[in-house]
Nucleic acid binder design. Structure first.
Lengths: 195, 195
DNA sequence: GCCTTGGGTTTACACTGTAAATTTACACTG
DNA sequence: CAGTGTAAATTTACAGTGTAAACCCAAGGC
């Protein structure tokens, strides 16, 4: 043990822990994974993680942020990689959204699940969410360019986001049958393309 | 204590327990309420509830069903009590939906939160959900009467439900600012009225 | 060489859901 | 009316949780 923990050592351990935890959360859901289990998976004693994270919630927060970043990157890629006009690109991002949520159910639940209400102070999380939302924002920008009022366009974004999120969570909860979310998205696309 | 527990006694205790539990859940969230706390609030020893419910999850399930019934009744009332055409009545039901969810955040979370995946066998819950959805279905019926294809109309229902649910959960999670859900609903209403 | 200091571990505590053992109190029998 | 069987309720117990506090031990500085 080096006498003092480097900033890098610290970050490295945090990253390793998040990697491991993320996998375990994805596999069996965040609240079926205990601190002791994470520690064991790291080959470290139960209390060691507490030297790097204040408590369990801080680990969840870190994994949540990583989830949002992976999510955002995916949406950006889908948008960028799809040929055609902005509407087509946005539609592709929408499908990427649904696919991510369904393929990473537990991660998605962790990301959007009920967590300590951030009193606006959780800046990193806020930024990660904003980045994920930005791809959607591009769609709103398009609406504005084509003459829609700003407020209207942003509200439209909100509606689309709500619909995506709602469709996905209902399907994840088993309330609506499999395939419903994609179906809903298809219908939403038809509305959006009509303006 | 009567020698044998009457069917009524049994139902009565269950009801009383659900009443109490529902209140505690509403106040501080279902998973901040322990079995021991519920028992204490009932003035009964910690293990007594287990004579009436197999386990904690069964209590949650019961409260969930009651939530859906209260919710369904509210939507039905809003629909019935609103004058005007079907669209106006449906819109009122939509606002009732959002208001219920925001006013009963923890109950709503419990109702739609991640719970033991019902392998289709949880009939009472299924019925309660169906009843809540029925008011929405009336709207779909209207669409069909005015010439829309059945599948299309049901998909439309699904889209509306998704949007309501999504808007509400995003606001409850603090991801979107207060008032967003109602705003989204307003916009949705404008789309729906245009067909 | 000691001495400090901080990373890591061990121990300990209050809490959880619930299985199992035990007590209690009634309805019925003799 | 005493005694008994039995179901309701309670008590006890256990394995697990998050985490506070005490402890141990090696890598510096003196």
């Amino acid at each position: 043990m080096s006498r003092q923990l480097t900033e890098d050592d610290l970050a490295a351990f945090k990253a390793r822990l998040c990697d491991v935890a993320e996998g375990m959360f994805a596999e069996r859901g965040a609240d079926n994974v205990s601190m002791r289990q994470i520690a064991a998976a790291l080959g470290v004693s139960p209390m060691t993680p507490y030297r790097y994270f204040a408590n369990r919630e801080e680990i969840l927060a870190a994994v949540r942020i990583r989830g949002f970043e992976r999510f955002a990157a995916l949406l950006e890629d889908a948008y960028a990689a799809t040929p055609g006009d902005a509407a087509q690109k946005s539609a592709a991002a929408g499908y990427a959204y649904v696919d991510f949520a369904l393929a990473n159910a537990n991660t998605y639940r962790l990301m959007f699940g009920e967590h300590q209400q951030d009193d606006g102070s959780d800046a990193p999380l806020g930024r990660a969410v904003a980045r994920a939302r930005a791809t959607l924002s591009v769609y709103g920008d398009g609406l504005i360019r084509s003459g829609m009022a700003e407020a209207e366009a942003r509200a439209m974004e909100g509606l689309i986001w709500s619909t995506l999120h709602g469709a996905v969570t209902l399907e994840l909860a088993g309330t609506t049958p499999p395939g419903s979310a994609r179906e809903t998205l298809r219908l939403l696309g038809r509305f959006a393309s009509r303006g």
